[in-house]
């Protein structure tokens, strides 16, 4: 009886997120959490009441150490992801992030109507991330860049290594460390807001599409309906095309 209107989908397994992408994703998540937590502490340290001599403590020092260590991980991880955008599979390709084609904009508009305006239409747009998500990730890459530039710019005078020294021009552009530090702090909020929306949308897509969105970043698999698969021998962003 249920079969009258139900069509049981046959799902086809697609290996969407390769292991390096998954590794990048979770390392990134981890270091960003560490950077935000330690960053908040550095910006406004807790009031410690202590009977010990200052020489016996290194609280701020350790927090900053974690921040800088995480920053290096973040930076190299970011570089790796950029590299993977050229050698990885098509879902990881750099073209997924840049709104350079008409098709890309069309799909972004479609996602906007479907997921934000909640209009009727076909749910399944992309197999990797949709155009809207790709564009938002592009913005996060810009934010990554801002944080790396301002962060290493502020760190450079403390370092003797040539790598951070490459960033000494950054505070000079902003007229000093004061404004550079503020930009670094303001940009951090983008990461927090992004994380909230990102996690919500992962649950949302898993819920309304039933394709294993949440687990895809664990095993790398997404499950695509056979008929959608047939329709998209290669990835077509917009099913309306």
């Amino acid at each position: 009886m249920a079969n009258k209107y139900l069509h049981i989908h046959r799902l086809r397994r697609v290996y969407v997120w390769e292991l390096p992408v998954r590794f990048y994703h979770w390392l990134n998540a981890l270091v960003i959490i560490a950077l935000i937590a330690t960053g908040f502490y550095i910006a406004n340290p807790l009031a410690i009441q202590s009977q010990h001599e200052a020489s016996g403590q290194y609280t701020m020092g350790w927090i900053r150490y974690i921040h800088f260590a995480a920053a290096y991980l973040f930076f190299f991880n970011f570089l790796f992801r950029l590299y993977w955008g050229f050698v990885g599979n098509k879902y990881a390709n750099w073209k997924q992030f840049l709104p350079i084609s008409k098709k890309f904009f069309k799909e972004m508009w479609y996602v906007f109507r479907m997921d934000i305006m909640m209009l009727k239409g076909k749910e399944h747009m992309s197999i990797g991330h949709n155009a809207m998500a790709g564009f938002i990730y592009f913005l996060t890459f810009i934010a990554f860049l801002v944080q790396c530039l301002t962060g290493f710019g502020l760190y450079a005078p403390m370092s003797t290594w040539w790598l951070p020294k490459l960033f000494t021009w950054v505070p000079a552009v902003f007229g000093g460390d004061i404004l550079t530090r503020q930009i670094h702090h303001w940009s951090m909020w983008f990461f927090i807001l992004f994380a909230v929306i990102h996690v919500y949308l992962v649950f949302y897509h898993d819920y309304v599409e039933g394709r294993g969105e949440i687990s895809s970043m664990g095993g790398g698999w997404k499950f695509i309906e056979e008929e959608v698969f047939e329709r998209n021998h290669h990835q077509t962003p917009n099913p309306e095309n």
Partner: peptide, 26 residues
């Protein structure tokens, strides 16, 4: 986000219902 979650359950009720039904059928 909360408003969107509520709206999703209202606007996409049929879709979610079908997904659940499909799962239950299996």
């Amino acid at each position: 986000v909360a408003a969107h979650a509520v709206a999703t359950n209202v606007r996409k009720k049929k879709l979610i219902f079908e997904l659940e039904k499909e799962g239950k059928q299996s």
